[in-house]
């Protein structure tokens, strides 16, 4: 279980880390919490020549919220800090639902949301709720800065649109709008620690009693967190009633294209998507009702 050899840097500024990343080129990796990278390295699946630790950079370690601009989470904010943040608990409960199921206390004291996204596992719990709530990620290189919709971020297992010379510096979520609600539901063999067998994120917006907008993203049932467009379409323009929810859940299940593996079979995952979608749509609806102002 020994780690491969690498050189190590812990720059104090983003500028210095970008410069290093550019200088070192291929084989250089940035590390935030390191909880995924360390496992990959000890299993011989990742052999970095250089590791640049981002955790000594104060400007990346923050969580900011205000009711006008929304939420911004710096890339080295810990999962445990997200989980205990009063504004996130109040305004973004779907994100809390995801983070509280991720790994365990020790790992949440080290790991970060940005790391979970950049690791790009199809089962990444934080991806579906962030995607349905219209999250953007900030990618910075020594030459340019850009913002990318998280919906367009993932390309495949372990692959994203982030270039090798870019660092994810922040994740932003828009301010919560009136009559909107979101939820994340997941299932796995064990309640914590274990990777999700299936997960469903839902966000909806009501106009009086009509479902005006819907976003549904499925986790762990495709090579990337998958947007369920047919299920969304089944909700939009309708009222919340059991038949509508049942039909949308069935659509989500049909859109899922999971594999069978040690955690669950393809059929089980598809069935669970329907169950989780039904629950998540219902909870998102209840929350959108509760949020009037």
């Amino acid at each position: 279980m020994r780690l491969p050899r690498f050189e190590y840097f812990a720059p104090k500024t983003l500028e210095a880390s970008l410069e290093l990343l550019g200088q070192k080129g291929d084989g250089a990796f940035v590390m935030a919490g390191g909880t995924d990278m360390m496992v990959k390295m000890s299993h011989g699946r990742l052999k970095p020549r250089t590791i640049i630790n981002l955790k000594e950079i104060p400007e990346l370690h923050y969580i900011k919220f205000n009711p006008q601009n929304g939420l911004e989470i710096g890339s080295t904010a810990l999962l445990s800090e997200v989980l205990n943040h009063a504004d996130i608990i109040e305004h973004y409960p779907a994100l809390i639902q995801a983070v509280q199921t991720m790994a365990n206390i020790e790992v949440r004291n080290m790991a970060t949301l940005a790391g979970n996204l950049c690791n790009a596992a199809p089962s990444a719990d934080s991806a579906p709720p962030l995607m349905v709530m219209d999250a953007e990620v900030s990618l910075v290189s020594s030459r340019a800065k850009r913002k990318v919709k998280l919906m367009d971020f993932f390309l495949g297992p372990g692959a994203t649109v982030k270039n090798v010379d870019e660092i994810m510096t922040a994740i932003t979520l828009p301010a919560p709008r009136p009559q909107t609600g979101a939820s994340y539901m997941r299932i796995s063999a064990r309640c914590g620690v274990d990777i999700a067998a299936a997960g469903v994120g839902v966000a909806i917006r009501l106009e009086s009693e009509v479902l005006a907008e819907a976003r549904i993203v499925l986790g762990a049932v495709a090579p990337v967190p998958l947007r369920a467009v047919k299920a969304e379409a089944a909700l939009v323009g309708r009222q919340f009633d059991p038949e509508t929810v049942q039909y949308a859940a069935q659509m989500a299940s049909e859109e899922a294209s999971p594999i069978s593996d040690v955690r669950a079979t393809r059929d089980y995952r598809k069935s669970m998507v329907a169950v989780l979608a039904k629950r998540a749509i219902s909870e998102a609806y209840e929350r959108s009702h509760a949020r009037h102002s």
Partner: peptide, 23 residues
């Protein structure tokens, strides 16, 4: 050695962490 079992837990600056996943 993968952060799943907790046997390596130590407290760093007041927070419990997995020492096997910490450089």
């Amino acid at each position: 050695g993968t952060g799943d079992c907790g046997a390596c837990a130590v407290i760093v600056d007041g927070k419990a962490v997995s020492s096997c996943l910490t450089l």
